[in-house]
Design a protein around this nucleic acid. Structure first.
Length: 485
RNA sequence: GGGGCGUUCGUCUAGUGGUUAGGACGCUGGCCUUUCACGCCGGUAGCACGGGUUCGAUCCCCGUACGCCCUACCA
């Protein structure tokens, strides 16, 4: 039985989501956003969006924009964030590096953190030998007690280093998860977490704790995967002399096989759901049924209904499988409820707008002799795609494994593409020809068949552009699944 | 390997120390209908296992199994 969630008596409830802008906007982000926002709304609190772009190698502005767009599409809007401002900014972590630096220095000065000069190779070597000897592969604290003169010398020499937290060596660290009760780990399990990376950016652990405190976050509502690192966060709060927030860990969305939801096994991009015509209110409703239920157990309810009845005591803790079939059923319910005008409006704002048709029509002009031919000709671009059969997918004189390998390369390249235009798609695919060691025509034919389900189509790249990245990804991934040896 | 979290129909879930364990998706039979879909009525299938505690456990406790997550200078 889940106890009531403690609320602050002297200050407003403040919650946040903190997505990192890498890759496509994720359905898990929307899930966590929904429960944060609903909790805030039911308590008169505020919902903050903070962008965790501390991974310089993976974060992109395009991905950040995509998060705004998709969450906005779902109506999961925020009171404070990089785009709308607020009293606790900046809300983009890459603009807060000075703050983290100062706080890391404080820990350094207080003897709660230390500089570690281990190189990546050194660490890899350490883990390798630890593994071969059957020891724990966590960091062995080799720089924890480096004499200060030596630290100074290396610093003066400009040696790159990270700052690590001095985790307690013995004892136990416990915290209270509002849904699960006390969670504790033995401190022998806690390693000296990196706080500041050698590039001067903080890790999640430092940035998160510092920002949540500075932004006066009262309840940290995040996914279950964070439970194991929460004790470290608790020790960080303690080291700073801060009061930790209430921790609420939500169950993880799952694939059909119960593993954590992933793009390999499920469409996870919010852009996919929008592109295939899932209604935002249906998706929000569906996410609200993941681990949560209305008191009367009704299946269909709006965000406002949810807020009116919201309580974490109605939360189930098992990891819910994200079932597309049930989403489709629910979405159908919403569609059937639409009036004629509203339905037409939805269809138009989906793909049946004159603007979109204006882009499709030129592609199909040569292929139609009557106007009525347009509709069947456009079906592979407007309609739902069936999985392309295996025989069609494998080019002549190619083996299944070869096709699988090549498709994998294509899928990964497409995932990474951030500029979805005819020319850039072409450049992107051309760039894969070498990697696959295939003839250009074979590779492009396989992609064409995977994406359209047919061998004869309008220009491949223009078609892909119009189809949109999300749907192309889904179809390519479907093909990859079919090809899997 | 180590640590943590979890476990009610295939899936999403409700639920209580005594219930024929309820609803939804799916699948399925029927009705409606010129057909299909929608809608309506019905069927299908579940408390992981073993010990306790108890007059009685799906529910409380302990163990086991299984699943998942973490174990990065990613979040």
């Amino acid at each position: 039985m889940i106890p009531p969630i403690p609320l602050p008596t002297d200050r407003p409830v403040r919650v946040r989501i903190a997505p990192s802008p890498t890759g496509d906007p994720h359905v898990g982000t929307a899930y966590v956003a929904l429960f944060n926002k609903a909790f805030a709304a039911s308590n008169g609190g505020r919902f903050v969006l903070r962008i965790e772009d501390t991974d310089q190698t993976r974060s992109t502005r395009a991905s950040e924009e995509a998060i705004y767009k998709s969450l906005g599409w779902l109506g999961l809007t925020w009171h404070e964030g990089p785009d709308v401002g607020g009293d606790y900014g900046p809300y983009r972590q890459s603009e807060r590096t000075e703050i983290y630096r100062e706080h890391a220095d404080k820990l350094l000065a207080a003897g709660r953190a230390y500089r570690c000069f281990a190189t990546a190779e050194e660490l890899a070597e350490m883990r390798k030998s630890a593994k071969s000897e059957g020891r724990s592969t966590s960091y062995d604290r080799r720089y924890r007690d480096l004499p200060s003169a030596e630290v100074e010398r290396r610093l003066a020499a400009g040696e790159p280093h990270v700052i690590r937290f001095k985790a307690p060596l013995d004892g136990v660290t416990a915290f209270n998860d509002a849904l699960r009760g006390e969670v504790s780990i033995d401190n022998s399990q806690m390693d000296d977490q990196v706080l500041m990376k050698s590039d001067g950016f903080p890790t999640y652990h430092l940035a998160n704790v510092v920002d949540d405190h500075l932004m006066e976050i009262t309840h940290v509502i995040r996914a279950e995967e964070w439970i194991p690192s929460t004790p470290k966060h608790v020790r960080l709060y303690e080291a700073f002399g801060w009061q930790p927030p209430v921790f609420i860990h939500l169950p993880l969305l799952r694939n059909a096989d119960k593993s954590k939801i992933s793009k390999r096994k499920n469409p996870v991009s919010l852009e996919f759901y929008e592109a295939v015509g899932i209604l935002p209110e249906a998706l929000v409703n569906f996410l609200g049924r993941m681990g949560w239920s209305m008191p009367d157990e009704r299946e269909k309810f709006s965000y406002d209904d949810m807020v009116a009845e919201f309580s974490f005591q109605r939360m189930a803790l098992g990891g819910p499988v994200f079932d597309l079939e049930k989403l489709d059923w629910l979405n159908g319910l919403y569609i059937r409820e639409l009036g004629d005008d509203a339905l037409v409006e939805r269809l138009q704002s989906w793909l049946l707008s004159s603007g979109y048709l204006a882009r499709v029509a030129p592609l199909l002009r040569e292929r139609i002799s009557r106007l009525e031919d347009f509709v069947p000709q456009a079906s592979f671009i407007l309609g739902r795609a069936e999985a392309t059969p295996l025989e069609l997918l494998i080019p002549k004189k190619k083996e299944r494994v070869e096709a699988y390998r090549a498709m994998k390369i294509v899928v990964e390249a497409v995932d990474a593409c951030r500029d979805w235009r005819n020319e850039s798609i072409e450049a992107l695919l051309r760039a894969q020809v070498e990697a696959t060691e295939w003839k250009l025509r074979d590779l492009f034919m396989m992609v064409r068949v995977a994406v359209t389900g047919q061998k004869a189509t309008p220009g491949l790249f223009g078609t892909m552009e119009l189809l949109g990245k999300a749907r192309c990804q889904a179809r390519l991934r479907q093909a990859l699944l079919t090809l899997r040896p």
